[in-house]
Amino acid sequence: MPAQHQFAGLRRALLRVAEAVVIVYVVLDGIITPIFRPVLRWTAQLRLILSLQDFVRRLPPYAILVFFLVPHAVIEPAKIYAVYLIGSGHPLIGLITLALTYLIGLVVVERIYNAGKEKLRTIAWFAKILDWLFDFRDRLIAWARSTEVWAFAVKTKRWAADVIRQARLRVGAWLTSKFG
C-alpha cells in the first residue's frame, strides 16, 4: 500500500474526529449559552468587565489575540475534563466544572472577543478561521434544524412551555382565591 494512500486514510479519520469535536462543541454551546444569557447581561454592566473591555480595545491586534487565546487554552481542556468527570462516575463535580468553565468562558472570553473583534479581524488568517468556523456552525445548525429530532425538540419545548404557563396561571388563581 503506498504511503500516500495510508496518509489519505489517516487524514480522513482525523477530519472525522475534528468534525465530531466541533459538532459536540457547537451542540453543547447551543444548549448552555442560552442558560447563561441573563448572567452575561448582568456581568456586561460590571465595572470590572467594562474596564477589561476598555483595556482590550486599546491593545494592538496580536496582543488582543493573546488575551483571547490564553483563556481558551485553559477553559477548553477544562470542559473536556468536565465531560470526562461526568462519564467516569463524578457527575456532580463534572457538571459544576462544566458550568463554571462555560460561565468563565462566556463572561471573560466573549467580552474580550467583543471588545477586540474589529482589531482581531484585521489579522487575515484569524479572520479566515473565524469565517470558516461561523460558516461551519451555521451549516451545522441549518442541518440540525432540518432533522426530525429538531422538530421533536421544538414540539417538546412548546409543550413544556405551555404546561408551565398553565401551571403558573392555576397557581396564581389559587393564590388569589386564598389570599387575594
Results as ranks from 00 to 15, higher is better:
74 V>R: 05
4 Q>N: 12
91 P>C: 05
13 A>M: 12
81 Y>C: 12
167 A>P: 09
41 R>T: 10
15 L>K: 10
95 L>T: 13
145 R>W: 00
100 L>D: 10
11 R>F: 04
144 A>W: 03
154 V>N: 08
134 F>K: 00
4 Q>H: 11
147 T>G: 12
28 L>F: 13
180 G>V: 00
43 T>M: 07
33 T>Q: 05
43 T>L: 09
51 S>C: 01
133 L>T: 09
96 I>W: 11
101 T>H: 09
16 R>H: 11
135 D>I: 03
115 A>I: 10
145 R>V: 04
3 A>Q: 00
29 D>V: 00
27 V>E: 12
105 G>W: 03
1 M>S: 13
34 P>N: 08
55 F>R: 07
8 A>C: 06
78 A>P: 05
171 V>Y: 07
158 R>A: 11
46 L>Q: 13
159 W>L: 12
71 P>W: 01
54 D>S: 10
135 D>P: 06
68 F>S: 06
169 L>Q: 08
167 A>K: 10
177 S>A: 12
109 V>Q: 09
29 D>A: 14
80 I>C: 04
17 V>N: 01
174 W>N: 07
106 L>R: 10
67 F>R: 08
72 H>T: 06
129 I>W: 08
170 R>T: 09
110 E>V: 01
155 K>M: 00
46 L>W: 15
84 Y>P: 06
71 P>Y: 02
173 A>G: 09
40 L>K: 05
40 L>C: 00
28 L>Y: 10
32 I>L: 14
47 R>T: 15
56 V>K: 02
99 A>I: 04
138 D>E: 01
25 Y>Q: 13
84 Y>Q: 12
67 F>P: 00
60 P>S: 07
10 L>D: 00
121 R>V: 07
154 V>K: 06
18 A>Y: 04
97 T>P: 02
135 D>K: 05
107 V>H: 02
64 I>Y: 11
89 G>A: 03
15 L>P: 04
77 P>H: 02
28 L>D: 02
8 A>F: 01
33 T>E: 05
148 E>W: 10
89 G>Y: 09
16 R>C: 09
155 K>Q: 11
105 G>Q: 03
76 E>F: 14
112 I>R: 15
69 L>W: 12
69 L>R: 08
118 E>R: 14
48 L>R: 06
143 W>I: 04
63 A>C: 11
123 I>D: 13
157 K>S: 13
129 I>A: 13
112 I>E: 09
145 R>G: 00
52 L>Q: 04
3 A>L: 13
115 A>K: 11
177 S>M: 10
88 S>H: 10
84 Y>N: 06
25 Y>N: 12
89 G>H: 11
123 I>Q: 07
101 T>A: 15
77 P>Y: 02
150 W>L: 05
55 F>W: 15
36 F>P: 08
77 P>R: 07
51 S>L: 00
29 D>K: 14
40 L>Y: 08
